[in-house]
């Protein structure tokens, strides 16, 4: 299953590119950036680097590719970067946060275990989302 992951990431990115109405001639760039970014993230996670840092580095790579695209084609980088980073969205962590939160709220008595679980998943989700957004925006830090 793992070997097909970049393909699925590309498919997810392509789907979002269509939703965001990315010009057809640039769809291929979205797919390429998504595959490169997702592959880098998978390699870094497998090599033992935490998922947050791996996501930050992969998103920074996509942001850099977006900047190069922007310089070369004279287009805003968002055209390819936003759809390309979508496959890195921490869907399972977000879902676990929701479920833990609902369980915590519906619990008749305060449960510190549920609270800790909710906080853990929420922090993971927030940090990964932050890493994605910061990574894409990071190349913009180079210029005033």
């Amino acid at each position: 299953m793992m070997t097909y992951d970049p393909f699925y990431a590309a498919l997810a990115a392509l789907g979002f590119a269509v939703i965001f109405n990315v010009p057809k001639k640039f769809l291929i760039f979205v797919v390429i950036a998504a595959i490169i970014g997702f592959t880098l993230k998978s390699i870094l996670v497998k090599s033992g680097i935490g998922i947050e840092l791996s996501t930050l580095l992969a998103a920074t790579l996509i942001g850099t590719l977006g900047k190069l695209f922007s310089l070369f084609y004279k287009e805003p980088h968002q055209i390819i970067t936003i759809a390309s980073v979508i496959p890195m969205v921490p869907g399972t962590f977000a879902f676990k946060t929701i479920i833990s939160l609902l369980n915590f709220v519906s619990s008749p008595l305060p449960s510190y275990e549920l609270l800790a679980q909710t906080t853990f998943y929420a922090a993971k989700t927030a940090f990964i989302l932050g890493a994605i957004a910061l990574g894409v925006a990071a190349p913009s830090l180079l210029k005033k």
Binding site: L14, I19, K24
Partner: peptide, 25 residues
């Protein structure tokens, strides 16, 4: 008119979400 119509966008969203399900094993 947008280059992708509403039905194409609906299918795109569905395929993207199925791809996410595959990414989540």
């Amino acid at each position: 008119d947008q280059q992708f119509n509403a039905l194409e966008k609906i299918f795109a969203a569905a395929f993207a979400c199925a791809a996410f399900a595959a990414l989540f094993q």
